[in-house]
Design a binder for these strands. Structure first.
Lengths: 187, 187
DNA sequence: GAAACTATTTAACAAATGATAAAAAAGAAA
DNA sequence: TTTCTTTTTTATCATTTGTTAAATAGTTTC
């Protein structure tokens, strides 16, 4: 997905303001398996996915638990870093070869203070992420594992081809064995 | 909690900008049991809690599931209404007699477009809510019901005096019977 | 204080999920 | 293809949680 579409989908900007953002954006290609963010590190960048797919995970005891997937058009942000300039608790790993748009947080923060349109773009960005987060929260709290699995398939059918089931299981809040049982029952 | 402190804790404003917000704010007192927001309705206001406590809940089949508590200093916002001008899925009910600061969403939206400081205040507001939402999500996905219960007690000890256990149970994602068992084991 | 109502706990059984190990299937590499 | 490695499924048993119903505790009302 092209950067113009990504920016405008969040909040449409005049070309002057959009150019101010775009001037700060670089493009990079990174291979499958690359770790984009490390837990307990200050991250100074955010990304948007042009092509590819990624996951964020953290450790609980010894095992990784995936709590976020990102695909074309999605932002990759460590929120603790972005909002509070604090170390995050998550690793972000690329699950395919990726093309990314890269943006220094510091530059964006500066633009927020200089350009009211960009400030409102940043506001909308967080509002939309907040809606997504609340939806996930409700789905975890209200629905059974089977319902969450079916909803994921419905919202994002191709995830099953692109991401291995162990990651999907932990994203759903269950073990891989349990997901396997759910899938067997649905047949 | 006073409105100046609530506003400044989110993002400190010059008095000029703060006054612009405060000019749009009314104070109301509403009794325990009052329903502030109704599901499937367009809500045109947001609130901040000066005094009291509230919960947001939605229905799953026939039973209410509480997914949010707010206390002194917290905002009361139906996010679907606030962000997308769409009907929300939640009722918000006051659990004590409350004193609230009331603000028309429309007026705030206007200020966002006119005052860059307020736009950044609104940005920060959503960022902070997003951090809270992500923390809850992680706690639901990573921790056991017992751990979530203990964490809630630690973060907010007095909740146990102010809110009945059936609401706390559904907030934790379990039944009241299950919470009762957890409490019995902890003794 | 007694009665009525609401909230919380306890009990018994069913269903779902976790943990561990082993088998089967799928994919990658030689 | 054949071998090796990784991923997914299946099986078994323990633990947790859900469901329903009844008992207890706590509040409110008269």
């Amino acid at each position: 997905m092209e950067i113009d579409e990504i920016i405008d989908t969040i909040y449409p900007l005049t070309s002057t303001s959009k150019d101010l953002i775009k001037k700060s954006i670089l493009q990079t290609k990174l291979p499958k398996g690359h770790t984009l963010f490390k837990a307990n590190k200050i991250e100074t960048r955010i990304y948007f996915i042009k092509k590819g797919i990624a996951r964020a995970y953290a450790y609980s005891e010894d095992n990784q638990i995936t709590f976020w997937f990102g695909k074309e058009g999605d932002p990759i942000v460590s929120m603790q870093n972005y909002v509070n300039n604090q170390k995050g608790y998550e690793d972000v790993e690329l699950l395919e070869d990726c093309e990314l748009y890269e943006l220094k947080t510091e530059k964006l923060q500066k633009l927020f203070l200089e350009d009211i349109q960009i400030a409102n773009w940043g506001r909308k960005f967080s509002e939309l992420e907040l809606i997504k987060s609340e939806e996930r929260l409700i789905s975890l709290q209200f629905n059974t594992a089977t319902e969450r699995y079916l909803a994921l398939l419905k919202n994002y059918p191709s995830i099953i081809q692109r991401v291995q089931l162990s990651h999907i299981a932990s994203y759903l809040g269950i073990t891989q064995v349990s997901l396997s049982r759910i899938r067997a029952k649905l047949k």
